[in-house]
């Protein structure tokens, strides 16, 4: 059987779950462990935690979140954000991550992908590529949540990442991320046709049909989703203490909802099945 995975992505800043648009303009949504537990119970296939600030002094709160989660959630957990060295990787694996996600450090020092995949196994090393489409139509890789220009061509970089031994690629369209306008199908199709390793698509899902479209036609292994599921969680748990702590007024005012049709993991999976795309349901 060939199945796809649905992976909720939790962007973390300090002790909080946050969400932005184009990876920026972060808003606090609540307590990460509440969201993680809900997604686990809803049938998430994996979880992704991304430390979006990744400053050194906040690293400990990320570690606490991971080890708390890993004690009661028995699905794979990937952790990314600010991992710069073999010892950083070792540390997040030690506190309970199953895989790590590299970006900035990998572009600056591609040898890190090779060393890390040799040491921890290819399947432990995920490389995130943040793509921005330039006005001339070229896709370039950025780092630091789409802020830092590298000049690296996305497609050349994807091939190199696979050659260096990464086990998976997460391709984020920064242009689409947080907008709910749908995935950049041109970008993801081209990437997945260039590499033999699984590709995870991220950035742009505004309704469940977007997820179905990309998984149906593009030979993509998984979809990584945040806004759709987070907004659904908040809708379903309006009286929830953790949600009340978050700065979710913008959601209650429905301003940010207009491009989104929030749905649950189960909703998405049922829709996939109806479209003859196999997944664990």
């Amino acid at each position: 059987m060939k199945t796809v995975r649905i992976i909720p992505r939790l962007d973390i800043k300090g002790p909080n779950l946050v969400k932005g648009i184009h990876l920026e303009g972060l808003r606090v949504l609540g307590k990460p462990s509440d969201f993680a537990k809900y997604y686990y119970e809803q049938g998430a296939d994996e979880l992704m935690f991304m430390d979006v600030v990744a400053s050194l002094y906040e690293r400990n709160s990320l570690h606490d979140i991971i080890s708390e989660t890993a004690k009661s959630i028995f699905i794979p957990i990937t952790v990314g954000g600010g991992l710069r060295s073999i010892s950083d990787i070792k540390e997040v694996l030690r506190v309970g991550a199953d895989k790590v996600c590299l970006n900035t450090a990998a572009i600056k020092n591609p040898q890190l992908i090779k060393d890390a995949s040799r040491m921890f196994g290819s399947s432990t090393i995920v490389v995130a590529i943040e793509a921005i489409k330039e006005s001339n139509g070229k896709y370039l890789a950025y780092t630091d949540n789409g802020r830092e220009y590298t000049g690296v061509d996305v497609f050349e970089w994807a091939q190199k990442v696979a050659e260096l031994g990464a086990g998976e690629i997460v391709i984020t369209s920064v242009d689409k991320e947080g907008t709910g306008q749908g995935y950049d199908l041109e970008l993801v199709s081209k990437i997945t046709n260039l590499v033999g390793i699984p590709v995870i698509v991220h950035g742009g899902a505004g309704k469940q049909d977007h997820v179905v479209d990309v998984l149906k036609d593009c030979n993509i292994s998984s979809a990584m989703i945040s806004s759709l599921f987070h907004y659904h969680f908040i809708k379903e748990n309006e009286s929830h203490a953790s949600v009340l702590e978050g700065n979710v007024e913008f959601l209650n005012q429905k301003r940010s909802f207009h491009t989104f049709e929030p749905c649950s993991i189960e909703d998405v999976k049922r829709e996939l099945k109806r479209n003859q795309i196999d997944c664990r349901l």
């Binding site: 060939k2 995975r5 046709n193 033999g196 390793i197 699984p198 030979n219 292994s221």
Partner: peptide, 15 residues
């Protein structure tokens, strides 16, 4: 199987 676009590693929930 890679030539026919099957991804390796096999990373998935499977039966």
């Amino acid at each position: 199987i890679i030539e026919r676009k099957v991804k390796v590693p096999h990373i998935a929930w499977n039966t």
